[in-house]
Design a protein around this nucleic acid. Structure first.
Lengths: 256, 256
DNA sequence: CGCGATTTGTGCACGTCTTCACAAGCGCCT
DNA sequence: AGGCGCTTGTGAAGACGTGCACAAATCGCG
């Protein structure tokens, strides 16, 4: 991931927004905390303890406290955290206060699903435009947005500053799309194509590969099977639990 | 992450494939290597050096060598790795040699896309059944498979052993679906619903949350913006030219 | 007004992962 | 056969992340 440079002046005079320089692992967990906090807020909770929030987010409470302490958190000892304040803090740190425009390239199977996914809007992301290279798909309307040809990307980007590009094309097209996104000034890319993208310095790429996730699960499945004894294939339902083996602490944040 | 218990008997009676006990980080990268290797095989390469494979997979070459060394790799010094052999090794370790049946629950927007995703089949995963709780969706045919009601899950699982369950339902339904999957013997779950699942020991859960990925990107975008934009605190020694700062090594494996 | 219950924030130790650097091994060329 | 260049495999060091355990801080109550 992008390497974090130390700020030039270490003992900085306390600037109010206090550039965070958060550990990457912490950043990856903040959105999960945020989701849990919104759930709490919706159910009427005003404050929450680190223990409560930790279980709601599926992590260790010590880890959560350390994470929050990194962003100079406001919590009151003996009481807990103010849910509303904490939501504001995290949203501010993540930069979710400004609505970021997302351009989605590739409206195939997955692209359709992404275009219709409402989890984006609810977190401050607005899908600003859909693109595809296939003329047959151009003009189609998905969820109130019209698919444009990828060649129009520069024009659209000029009208409206695009913060994040999402690539949902076949692997063969992904690199070229990435280049075009970079060319119009996009510096953050979410890549669903199963391939490695090469981008210039300063551009962040995150990759999501569904097949990879399955293969990781497959490994654990395979390992569990070979531990329990032998059942090579089948793995028929109902293996009684061999009480001895303690695979614990599932529930993992994807990221990292 | 699943905690790895040492097998009770260390010098275990020789299981032929030699239980690996790989570092989790290594496991997460193996699928990426595998994909790169398939690409190489398709383009006629018979051998590949660690350097070549590393760049194809977007990682450091030393890391790659260490990863491969963990699975007792077959490479020849001065030459490199035999592509075909390495593919076989990795597939064997990941347990991809046996076709694993996948049950997909929730055929909404995302579920449709997953059902039609061909990246699964190409890696040895076969979507064996589709389920949904909405009677309006039951009976629909997607990609040659008929959507069944979730209540039929036990019957289907009895006929055909399901290795992995994929949850693509709304968050509100996810926990119940997970419980039902666990009840029929599924021990590996891929969860796309934005919520924390609680499962018994021995069940592995991996979570993919598209909104979280965007929020992580948003953070980096936010940070980049606040670096170039305002010089932050009054640190007399201003940060030197932005050109100097080396944000390197983007292109990150999703996992961890 | 002070005390105890509760919860945060964090120093410290430990485990995991990464990266460097280099010896050992292999093939090829002379 | 011998040497040379190339590549793997790995020891060691350092960076990073995690979790324990406890002091500091705050509230409520007698």
């Amino acid at each position: 991931m992008s390497q974090h440079r130390h700020p030039g002046a270490p003992g900085s005079a306390g600037a109010v927004p206090a550039l965070p320089d958060l550990p990457e692992a912490t950043v990856a967990r903040l959105p999960e905390y945020l989701r849990a906090l919104h759930n709490l807020a919706d159910t009427g909770h005003e404050t929450v303890s680190s223990e409560g929030l930790a279980t709601a987010a599926g992590v260790n409470s010590a880890k959560l406290r350390k994470d929050l302490s990194h962003l100079g958190s406001y919590g009151t000892r003996g009481v807990g955290y103010d849910v509303a304040v904490l939501i504001g803090q995290i949203e501010s740190v993540l930069g979710l206060t400004q609505n970021r425009a997302v351009a989605l390239v590739g409206v195939g199977n997955l692209g359709h699903a992404l275009a219709g996914y409402d989890g984006f809007a609810s977190r401050g992301f607005r899908i600003a435009a859909l693109f595809d290279a296939d003329p047959a798909r151009v003009g189609e309307e998905i969820n109130g947005l019209v698919v444009r040809h990828i060649d129009e990307l520069p024009r659209v980007a000029a009208e409206e500053s695009i913060a994040i590009g999402v690539i949902a094309t076949p692997a063969a097209a992904a690199q070229q799309v990435a280049d075009e996104l970079v060319a119009v000034g996009v510096t953050s890319i979410l890549n669903f194509a199963p391939c490695v993208l090469s981008v210039p310095e300063g551009v962040d790429v995150r990759k999501v590969d569904l097949a990879i996730e399955l293969q990781i699960l497959s490994f654990h499945e395979h390992r569990k099977a070979s531990l329990t004894g032998l059942p090579a294939t089948g793995g028929s339902a109902l293996t009684a639990l061999p009480g001895g083996l303690a695979a614990t602490d599932s529930q993992e944040a994807i990221g990292t």
